[in-house]
Design a protein around this nucleic acid. Structure first.
Lengths: 239, 239
DNA sequence: CCCTCTAGGATTGTCGACAATTTGCGTCTC
DNA sequence: GAGACGCAAATTGTCGACAATCCTAGAGGG
């Protein structure tokens, strides 16, 4: 090796991402932020000319998003952005609760509690600054980055993989039902307490806080439904 | 409607599945059963001629499997069947534990406990017949169908979606480490007790049984590691 | 004898065109 | 005027060929 290690730390292959991945990411963001509202049809020809690529890579990106559950494909009809029904809010948060509970367990029992807690506090700081600038979008983004960081910290490839779509769908919920917001301080507070419990290694408290965090969100986004008790499917429309 | 309802109950569109889906399913089965051992390279050209289709649909199927986590793609190098490292066994069962726990909670709290229990008992019967015929493959298949049925019974689209890959990976584990088998009666017994707890609506017992079921499997497949205690990552190799 | 550079082969990535299917509208009949 | 039939436009599904990239083997020089 002619180059001393440690130098040129950030050079990487010129195009490390496939074009399909780039397109998929752009569409993901557009769906997350609401630029592509639920129900809109995505024409392959139109998008191909918009992105300046052929239909091949674009189709791959679409297929990817379909398998992720963000797009639904009707044969010979087209691809549509999924629209979240009331029951989906419950379903998403129930699934998130399961995933993040497992991630929290692994984080608490793993060795690096303090390191993980520091990472999480960093995202809470982002939340605070976004709140002080009165930027709801950035606030939601920071909120999700907290949970993403928690799941990443679990060190589980499969938890990370499964959570990716869930977090995007959560973002869709937040943008779609932007109206109902809870007090910002409360929102930050919940996360802070969560971090403290993690730092203390208090698994029981951490899991309880996580459950109540999810429960709060569900009741806020889909009033009348609850994760923790009562019969499960509050609204039909899940397979 | 000229046809009386109830007649011709099974006619459906001639080809309801896209060719890419058919190919994906075939490859999935081949990977599950071990016909395509971990690490083997899948050449697009070769497979295209084997399946008698162009490379377009085949690429779509591959992309699908990549996003599901069954294939890993190295740019400009090829697609390879993933090989499960020791740490992956732990990761898979930890993730399954999280998913199936949530599914069990929804099944217990949902209204149709008895109906679900009947469905599950059906799969246990399959296990018993497979065992009596001394067919390890069919036994594993029936075992997985039990868990698949449980997750389907939860009624959660997202739990079902997330579990699909996990169950396939579980199958890969079982075929790869076919050597270590537990006693068949014990295997059936565990499932039966699980069903009984579900039927009784005894959530706590059901969850405890599920945990121990997973714990047993992990200790059997990856000796020396445990889900329920100790530091989490027993073996490096997870991102 | 080892390292480097180069040429070859093979594989994936991308593209444009053709074919199959569905949907909507116009027309024709009753 | 209402219903059914058929046609046409638009969209997706599929295909074969070309271009870009990477691994490997071999020759040449140190």
């Amino acid at each position: 090796m002619a180059l001393p290690p440690g130098m040129l730390p950030e050079i990487e292959p010129v195009s490390r991402e496939s074009t399909a991945a780039v397109i998929a990411r752009q569409l993901r963001d557009a769906i997350m932020t609401g630029a592509l509202p639920p129900g809109t049809q995505l024409g392959e020809t139109e998008l191909a000319s918009r992105f300046q690529v052929s239909r091949g890579p674009l189709r791959e990106a679409m297929q990817h998003l379909v398998s992720e559950g963000l797009l639904r494909s009707e044969r010979h009809r087209g691809l549509f952005v999924i629209d979240l029904e009331p029951g989906d809010v419950y379903d998403i948060y129930a699934a998130r609760s399961a995933i993040e509970r497992a991630a929290m367990i692994r984080a608490v029992r793993g060795g690096d509690r303090d390191r993980i807690a520091d990472l999480l506090e960093q995202t809470v700081t982002e939340m605070a600054t976004a709140a002080s600038e009165d930027d709801p979008g950035a606030l939601s983004t920071a909120d999700l980055r907290f949970h993403e960081a928690l799941i990443n910290a679990s060190g589980s490839k499969r938890l990370v993989r499964m959570a990716r779509t869930l977090l995007i769908e959560t973002r869709m919920c937040l943008t779609a039902l932007q109206s109902t917001y809870q007090r910002v301080e409360e929102r930050v507070e919940e996360h802070t307490k969560l971090i403290q419990a993690l730092r203390d290694g208090d698994e029981e408290t951490a899991l309880a806080l996580l459950d109540s965090h999810m429960e709060d969100a569900v009741q806020r986004l889909a009033p009348g439904t609850s994760l923790i008790e009562g019969h499960v499917p509050p609204v039909p429309g899940n397979a």
